[in-house]
Simulated assay, not measured.
Amino acid sequence: MLAPDDLRRAVPATARSAAAPRPGRRPRFARRATLRRSLRLLGSFRFEQTDPARFYGGIAVDTAELIEDFYADHTGRDLSGLVVLDVGGGPGYFADEFAARGARYIPVEPDPAEMHAAGLQVPAAVRGSGTALPFRDDAVDVCLSSNVAEHVATPWRMAQEMLRVTKPGGLMVFSYTVWLGPFGGHETGPWHYLGGERAAARYRRKHGREPKNRFGTSLFAVGAGEGVRWARGIGSRATVLAVFPRYHPRWAWWLVRIPVVREFLVSNLVIVAAKA
């Protein structure tokens, strides 16, 4: 995670609020970021395509806990009664977890096949693009995106849209897979280190079909440094509460602060911001 001094440099004084973490105070979520959690989550990745319900079930619990903790740090409240917008929410794997916490969950997904992939039915589901969200300004309490930005050609436009629809005082949580990290190529990894096209060609030769995540079409190279720079440039629109590697234990969060190293060792970057 960016250190308190880094956060103060990243965000102008006019954008910081009394609810932002005090210098030296760890986010509540840090107590969950143990090595055991990291191993459990990383181990679940092998089920992403063969048993998606098992994979996304674990990610759903972790995502809800992450957001609940940061929202409590920021406001002192739980998620009861809040509207949570999940950009790129697919069929709604996260719906039950947020409903259990009393939140109204709304998934947004551009691909109708993905919306119906698991046979789930989420009444509030919306078909729409993350880069042009069909919602008014300041519409939702929490806007999240989990492992979606790497599938979008213009991920930072999506980040801007997410911030736009978040209410003042609400949270935006933007989590994505880093291209040069070990999972950057998704099912084509680790051959993505030789280039996205080569990795896709190798997958095609081996399996006789195109990969689900096709480089240049549905998979793009997004770096950790891009996320850090976006957070630092957020200006007066929001307070950056945390930038950290999602699947790492707390004692390894410092990796985000090291250029080049973070591109290879941060598998997934999380940006948590509170809208001003």
Rank of each mutant, 00 (worst) to 15 (best):
E48T: 07
M158Q: 15
R136M: 09
V260I: 14
L133S: 02
Q121D: 14
G189A: 15
S80L: 05
G119W: 05
V256A: 14
V261G: 05
N147I: 14
A20M: 10
A199S: 12
L171P: 11
P190K: 04
G195E: 00
T154Q: 13
R32S: 05
D86G: 00
T14D: 14
T177S: 10
T131P: 12
T75D: 02
D137Q: 05
R22G: 10
A117D: 08
L35T: 14
Y176V: 12
T75Y: 01
A200P: 04
D96F: 01
S38P: 10
V261T: 11
G170F: 09
P134A: 08
D141A: 09
P110E: 08
A276T: 09
P134G: 05
V270S: 09
R36K: 13
E65P: 00
M1L: 10
T188C: 13
R31L: 09
A117N: 06
S44G: 13
L255W: 12
G90Q: 05
E48A: 13
L41V: 02
L163K: 02
V148M: 04
A15V: 04
T63R: 07
A153D: 12
F220D: 04
G88Q: 12
S44E: 11
M158D: 04
P21V: 06
F55P: 03
R262H: 09
G181Q: 06
A231V: 02
L85C: 11
V260Q: 10
I67F: 02
H207Q: 06
L171N: 06
G89V: 09
N268I: 03
L120M: 09
P134L: 01
D96I: 02
L35R: 13
N147D: 13
D62T: 13
P168C: 04
K212H: 11
A199T: 06
R250I: 10
A139F: 09
A118T: 07
V140G: 06
V270Y: 02
E187S: 03
D141L: 07
F174V: 08
V222N: 10
R246N: 06
D138V: 03
E161W: 08
A100P: 03
F29R: 01
A238V: 09
L120A: 11
